[in-house]
Design a protein around this nucleic acid. Structure first.
Lengths: 163, 163
DNA sequence: GTTTGAAAGTTGAAGGCTCAAGTTCTATGG
DNA sequence: CCATAGAACTTGAGCCTTCAACTTTCAAAC
């Protein structure tokens, strides 16, 4: 490692803004979901990923990678969601090591009900302040950063056409 | 509230990328700081804000607002930092309600030592992937989002010229 | 001067997350 | 075959954060 360069003024401003966003955004969205449906943002993301998957089912490891979580974190959370009867777990026939997580009908209803308020809150704290150019720039820059953080990330591989 | 609009494809892509960044970034930076100096990203931010303040001292509530944290969270953390002799607390003469937090010499050395590795990790996962235009766009968009999340935020009021 | 309301902190409990350790199963190499 | 390594989880302990409740102090209004 060479001698460390400090951030220049532009980078510093950008960094402080990004730090502020990453600090404030999760708590803000959490709050809305907590009131609306008694779930955390992470709970919601897990349910959302399952709801969009084929048969509303995914292996735990695949679900972990789509939610950017460790298997450990996911395991704890899925246990909780199972106790609420929103998710069930089952063994995979092909590979006995893998556990499949499936969204229940009740879980599906829960997320369906929570979704409008959640989307509204995302709009309220992100997109209401951005024009079309901002949105395009945000996607471009966000993906560049994700590429450094997690080159194999799911969002980078997603096809461009989806509802 | 009118009927909820869903996100359009561009917004959805931007949202997924932003969600990925806010999920992955803190853990990534935490890891480096944990190894380097046994502190969390939030601990580091608290120490950093104090180190840049006049007399390395700030009222708890001001420190809370600069670190985007609740007073409760900050109180717990400052207690911990005080036990490590990195910060001291004292009562304010003018207003007996306020507690002042001051960075100790030892705390200053700690953050000074941790800073290079931290900056390097910020560069590694953010700025190494961005060109000048990206940095400018990131600052602009980041500040727009912060404006919606916390209009009174510190970063929005900062003068443009600083080291 | 009191009362009333809000500001500034602190605290304890409950729940969430991380880390290290352990289990079970699969794949690989001899 | 058998051994070994690694993949896919699960679990429990400990730290961190949130939430609600409480204390103390100041400011405003009467």
């Amino acid at each position: 490692m060479t001698s460390a360069r400090w951030l220049d003024p532009e980078e510093r401003q950008a960094w402080l803004a990004l730090l502020a966003v990453t600090t404030l955004l999760p708590g803000n969205l959490d709050g809305v979901l907590q009131q609306e449906a008694k779930v955390t943002l992470f709970d919601y993301t897990v349910l959302a990923m399952l709801s969009e998957a084929e048969d509303r089912t995914l292996p735990m490891s695949e679900l972990a990678s789509r939610t950017y979580s460790s298997l450990s974190r996911l395991s704890h959370v899925v246990k909780k969601l199972e106790q609420r009867d929103w998710v069930t777990r089952s063994q995979c026939k092909q590979d006995a090591r893998v556990t499949m997580a499936t969204l229940t009908e009740q879980g599906f209803k829960t997320i369906e009900e929570a979704a409008p308020a959640h989307v509204e809150s995302v709009r309220k704290v992100v997109f209401n302040g951005l024009d079309r150019r901002d949105v395009a720039d945000l996607e471009r820059i966000g993906k560049k950063i994700v590429h450094l953080l997690e080159p194999a990330s799911w969002v980078l591989r997603e096809p461009r056409l989806n509802s």
